[in-house]
C-alpha cells in the first residue's frame, strides 16, 4: 500500500507527464537514441537492470521538465551521461570513472566538471528524488511477500 501511495505522490509531482504522441518527433528520436545508449553501456559494464531503469526514469522526468533544448543536439547526450552516472552511483557498488562511462560510440566526450554541472541540474530538476518507485519495486515487494526467496527465484528476478 505504501508503494502505491508513494507512486501516486510521485505522479502528482511530475506535473507534465512525458507523453510521446504530443512530443516533437525529434525529441522522441533523441530520447530513443539516449535510451539505446544507456542500455548499451549497461550491458558493457554489467550494471543491474535497476540502474538502467533509474537512468531512464531520470531522463524522462528531466525531459518532461522544460529544460530540454532541441537546438543543442549534444545536450541530450550530456543529459544521458549524467543520468546514467547518477543511477550508477545510486545503485552500483563499482562505478566507472566519468570518462570511462562514455563508451559505446558516444558521439561526444564531456569533461567531468560539465557532467557534474548537469548532474546537479538534473538532481535539482528532479527535486533530489533519486529513489522513485519503479516496476522493480513492486516486483521486489511481491517476491518478498510471497516468500519466493530461494536462489532460483532471485536468479529469475535478476533477469527481469
Amino acid at each position: 500500500v505504501s508503494l502505491l501511495t508513494k507512486e501516486q505522490e510521485q505522479e502528482k509531482q511530475t506535473t507534465c507527464t512525458f507523453s510521446f504522441d504530443q512530443t516533437d518527433p525529434s525529441v522522441f528520436l533523441a530520447r530513443k537514441e539516449a535510451v539505446e545508449w544507456i542500455l548499451k553501456v549497461k550491458a558493457h559494464y554489467g550494471f543491474t537492470p535497476l540502474t538502467a531503469i533509474l537512468a531512464i526514469n531520470y531522463l524522462d522526468r528531466f525531459l518532461s521538465s522544460l529544460h530540454y533544448q532541441k537546438d543543442k543536439p549534444w545536450m541530450i547526450h550530456l543529459v544521458a551521461v549524467s543520468c546514467l552516472s547518477l543511477a550508477a552511483k545510486v545503485e552500483e557498488t563499482q562505478v566507472p570513472l566519468l570518462l570511462d562511462l562514455q563508451v559505446e560510440d558516444a558521439k561526444f566526450l564531456f569533461e567531468a566538471k560539465n557532467i557534474q554541472k548537469m548532474e546537479l541540474l538534473v538532481m535539482s530538476t528532479l527535486k533530489w528524488r533519486m529513489n522513485p518507485v519503479t516496476p522493480i519495486s513492486f516486483l521486489d515487494h511481491i517476491v518478498r511477500r510471497l516468500g519466493l526467496n530461494n536462489h532460483l527465484h532471485w536468479d529469475f528476478f535478476k533477469k527481469c
Binding site: S82, S85, L86, K89, V90, V95, L97, L98, A112, I115, Q116, E119, L120, M123, W128, R129, M130, N131
Partner: peptide, 12 residues
C-alpha cells in the same frame, strides 16, 4: 568525478 555517490544517496 561529479557529485559524490554517498552524498546523492544520503540526501535522497
Amino acid at each position: 568525478e561529479g557529485v559524490p555517490g554517498s552524498l546523492i544517496k544520503e540526501i535522497t
